[in-house]
Design a protein around this nucleic acid. Structure first.
Lengths: 208, 208
DNA sequence: TAGATTGTTAATCGATTAACAATC
DNA sequence: TAGATTGTTAATCGATTAACAATC
């Protein structure tokens, strides 16, 4: 998607699996095979229409319309995520933040992204039809908040608390554990590690 | 590793691949196979010695001794990471932070983790024999800082800037891209997505 | 029509797992 | 010795890739 965006910004209208895959660092066959999983979008002899492909991927990702998201827990990390511009750029809108600390709520009341007390979660979720939440609360609070979120229609959780969340079928959890990221790195700089050959993003698989 | 820690905390001295794997959410065979990649640590008929296995894994991960780490870029995210206690618990020590903004440096001069100006990077890295860095600077600054880091002996970078870093062979980059995490989640809450079956951590593969 | 590039088949490769002999 | 559980082999499964017919 990001490669396509770049092509689009440069005015390209058409791209071959060859060109796009090399930009993305994968093999052309891989790219074509993956795309056909969702349908047929290319033109033989020509390649793919950049606009059409962009739109199709946005639709698959669910980012073609602005996705409302809430953020729970306005500590250091929460604040950092609120001010992160990347979410918006990719089609997400943090409609509200929540915090258990009245002081934090008072301070955040009139911010661009308002901070509300926890008991307003149900109201806000139903008002904005929110289905995704970013969770940056302490481990102790995580599970009970998740229960509330799920009761109120959330089906996707980006979880920063280092704990395995229990969720019913149909709810997806993506865990981001920064300590694990660092451990992983640590492993690869040890001499016994088979030297890794490609720079790549973390790719979370995810949750029941 | 985290499962083992928990067993240890509970006074368990021995664990079977069966028990450990179910705690970790993988199959017993998988666990045994993976462990043998590093050697033979079990006792047939008995299982694995928790202490011995813990130690072996810590060694493989390189977390048996405290790993010195530096953090570059003390913005919102940088601050959040500095105050994150998880790193220390897992065997990492942020020995210093760095920032390009003199104001940030002035403020952070006498913090528990000191904030220093960028030009002191070489001195600090060699003094503490630092091999790992956490990068949370703006995209524009990322590559040039990475060059400095590598020149001064860093071989592992945890990168939060949404950019593909160019690094020589032997340097590992782990990218954490929060927008991608959210996109991934978004995909799975769409109806067309094959419902995912397991909650799991992001597992970064990594970099040349 | 000739050249290009897709979508798809079949071959290859690697990773997971069941089964079991080794052995505590 | 009998029961348990490892380490390892061989079978299975799924994912990647090469090759190519379809077709723009």
């Amino acid at each position: 998607m990001r490669c396509l965006m770049r092509l689009k910004a440069n005015g390209l209208e058409t791209v071959s699996s060859q060109a796009l895959s090399s930009a993305a660092g994968v093999k052309p066959t891989q790219l074509r095979k993956d795309l056909t999983y969702f349908g047929q979008f290319g033109t033989r002899g020509l390649g793919y229409d950049v606009n059409q492909l962009t739109e199709m991927i946005a639709e698959v990702l669910g980012t073609n319309t602005l996705q409302p998201v809430v953020l729970i827990g306005v500590g250091n990390l929460g604040k950092a995520l609120i001010s992160y511009k990347g979410f918006e750029r990719e089609g997400f809108e943090i409609v509200s933040a929540f915090d258990a600390n009245p002081g934090v709520v008072a301070l955040g009341k009139f911010m661009e992204i308002p901070v509300r007390p926890m008991d307003e979660i149900p109201k806000v979720l139903s008002e904005h039809q929110v289905r995704m939440a970013i969770l940056c609360v302490p481990v102790e609070a995580a599970q009970s908040i998740v229960n509330v979120l799920i009761e109120n229609g959330v089906t996707g959780i980006l979880n920063f608390a280092p704990i395995v969340l229990l969720t019913p079928e149909g709810v997806t959890v993506n865990n981001v554990n920064l300590a694990i990221e660092l451990e992983n790195l640590s492993y690869f700089i040890q001499e016994h590690a088979p030297s890794s050959d490609e720079t790549s993003d973390s790719d979370p698989t995810d949750g029941d």
